[in-house]
Design a protein around this nucleic acid. Sequence first.
DNA 1: ACACAATGTTAGATATACATAACAGGTGCA
DNA 2: TGCACCTGTTATGTATATCTAACATTGTGT
Lengths: 68, 68
Amino acid sequence: MKTRIRELRAKTGITQEELAQQVGVRRETIVFLEKGKYNPSLKLAYRVARTLGSTIEEVFIFEEEELA
Amino acid sequence: MKTRIRELRAKTGITQEELAQQVGVRRETIVFLEKGKYNPSLKLAYRVARTLGSTIEEVFIFEEEELA
DNA sequence: ACACAATGTTAGATATACATAACAGGTGCA
DNA sequence: TGCACCTGTTATGTATATCTAACATTGTGT
């Protein structure tokens, strides 16, 4: 899974820490998400997308093979 | 969380069992999802949405309060 | 009424998302 | 140089999504 979290954070000028607080998770969780190191719950994905002013499918990108 | 899984299943005429097989999970998992009894992983949400010919945000609906 | 398919529920086991804490490397700025 | 901030990593613990199996209920057709 790839994400545009870092890119969107840069665009809105917020840090991992700030995103974490707004989303209600720990900063480490954001680090792992940004690096695609795990597969978030749908609710968390929604929160991140909304906080970044975007949608789930724009923020979290799966390759076809990953879904098969 | 509410979902349109049942509605979209009806539209395409597939059973819980068939959806489960196509998505690669157990039927009980589909039952729980349909009833909003748990919060799926993003990857599972993607698979369900794609199998139903739709998108995550159309299939899984969160109320504002749930996200806050 | 009977048979069978579809759906619902429950209990226990396993995997993993996420929390927590602690530390390390990098960058910019005084 | 030094400090403060941002980012990355690792280890351990907890909560919960998902699996598995078994049984109950509801619906549908004949």
